[in-house]
Design a protein around this nucleic acid. Structure first.
Lengths: 253, 253
DNA sequence: TCAAAAGTGTTTCCCATACACCCATGC
DNA sequence: GCATGGGTGTATGGGAAACACTTTTGA
């Protein structure tokens, strides 16, 4: 009985190896939704104009192939983010993995989508290898869905390459849901080591897409962050138009 | 200028294709955390004993290779779930994608993890091709982490194959976070077309790992589900030990 | 009539919201 | 002074939690 089982297992090993090699391996890419806030506190996204087929001349979110065996998928995303914006060490979180056949006309491509939150002044945008252009677009909503606008161009979500409209929507939804119980908002601050309560409030307002009451926002901020030590009071103020605002520093966990 | 740019683009195209083909493509698997509740309302997970290397004779969550080009990743997960438990058409949601080099000693393997919630009586467990055995284990917590127990075996989380302990932890955490604002709990009911408030409450108690107040649970249930039409009152009762309980039916969205 | 589980009603407390008002600065 | 934005204090309402109590069944 035992020896038969062994034989059977070795047989299975052979079959398994055979099967594995028979499966066509998919290409894996990481695509990144890079979000920031502009000077008027509007939500912006970095889009690139594709220089190559498929979807040549269409706008897309940046992405690139995983160098399997040489890097983790997190590293691939970080590398792609750096190549497009010249920044590391920012908020970069995995979002979802898209793998419907046909989402890329070339071949089966599995795309692991990431979301990056970046202060605008840190962005040093440059078109990557396969991109003709790279620009920030404001995100607005209309009956047709999302409209991406910059000074020269208006793009409807339907005009984006691949299934990137779907990816972007998921990123915004996720961000909106996470902001109430995660520290995501701090990653959009101009300087998370020196910021005012109003600056943080404006970020919440943009992401939640509604205005907030400053006195109440202050109270919850002091209770949830300052008293718990996750943010410290710098005991100095910033000159501004009205009364100087107190400055705070976010403590990375 | 323009013609030069074209030339440059074609050159780039060549380089891009060259690079893509140079990248080793990773294998992609789907691994599934299959959760259910046993007769004593304890959380159970389906583990398989691996019949082949790597991690031969170690316990793992079920999984299998994606047949790229023939199926989406969602379909691969559903196929794997059916092959192991003989069920389709249950709650099956993507969890996270794991892609650290070295997580599989054979080669670079990207694993898209899924979570399935299944009523126990629907399970028809059978060991798949590469498994020697397949069994349900109760999930308990200890100082060392999670302990998996069934009548014959006790497994520490550190003894699991691959990074499956990490995947399971993420599944439980996600479930616990989602249960307050998603309908996940209904998928663990013995019969979501005919259940009592107490049955549902017991599921919440197991997942949240604390006891709940029945009168208050009833109030929120009636407000959030029955008055909104997401659950309908069947206007009949079930015989039981004490006062017969009213029966409800969950409306799939 | 008693145990067990379902179901009802009430009280309390916390916390989000609303909003009136004061403070410090530049011009 | 006055406009502007920062900062403080208080009142109110709704909902979650705690819990006392009633109802309906089986044995």
């Amino acid at each position: 009985m035992k020896s038969y089982k062994c034989t059977s297992k070795e047989e299975k090993a052979f079959l398994e190896n055979y099967d594995v090699s028979k499966f066509e391996r998919p290409s894996v890419t990481t695509d990144i939704v890079i979000l920031t806030l502009d000077a008027s506190d509007e939500l912006n996204i970095l889009l690139i104009k594709r220089g190559e087929y498929p979807y040549k001349d269409r706008w897309a979110i940046p992405g690139g192939f995983l160098a399997a065996g040489k890097e983790s998928i997190d590293e691939a995303a970080a590398r792609e983010l750096k190549s497009e914006t010249n920044i590391d060490d920012v908020y970069l979180k995995q979002l979802y993995t898209f793998g419907n056949p046909g989402r890329d006309p070339r071949t089966t491509v599995i795309s692991v989508a990431y979301m990056a939150l970046v202060p605008k002044h840190m962005l040093d945008i440059k078109a990557g290898d396969d991109a003709e252009d790279a620009k920030l677009f404001t995100i607005k909503y209309d009956v047709d869905g999302i409209i991406f606008t910059n000074e020269n161009t208006v793009i409807n979500e339907k005009d984006l390459a691949f299934d990137h409209a779907e990816i972007i929507k998921m990123a915004i939804t996720r961000l909106r849901n996470r902001i109430d119980y995660e520290d995501d908002a701090f990653n959009l601050l101009r300087d998370k080591n020196e910021f005012t309560i109003s600056e943080l409030k404006r970020i919440y307002e943009t992401i939640k897409n509604r205005s907030l009451d400053l006195p109440n926002f202050r109270k919850t901020f002091l209770r949830d962050y300052v008293s718990t030590g996750r943010v410290i009071d710098l005991n100095k103020t910033e000159v501004s138009k009205g009364k100087p605002a107190r400055l705070y520093k976010y403590i990375e966990r």
